[in-house]
Amino acid sequence: MSEAKKAPEGIYYTKEHEWVKLEGDLAVVGLTDFAQDQLGDITYVELPEVEAEVEQMGEMCVVESVKTAADVYAPLGGVVAEVNSALEDAPELINQDCYGAGWLVKLSGFDQAELDNLMDAAAYVQLMAQGE
């Protein structure tokens, strides 16, 4: 698997294996390739309510795989503007396309300054290499 697939450039990463991408006023959030690989087949996603408020690195939603259940943390504080309802019937989209069709949530009302607490692709790949 290429490095680009593992951690694409131009988006931000948390050490808990979430990614976030800015799209105008919205921040799209998902799980990294490392996360989906660790989880194995994802069978259910408990998405947050639209308009729910989240804090940076606060609990945002839960994903369940055949192996385990895991909290997903909000990379940025803000308000849930949109959820990927396609995951309700097809949670496997996260395994198949974690940086695309498998996105989880779009946040609005976030503070750009909080991006400083996140990593770029190079830093995230380095963290992976250190065996985090």
């Binding site: 808990e16 979430e18 989880l39 994903v63 192996k67 385990t68 895991a70």
Partner: peptide, 8 residues
Amino acid sequence: MGALGGEG
């Protein structure tokens, strides 16, 4: 992402 239930 944080694990809630582990693998033994």
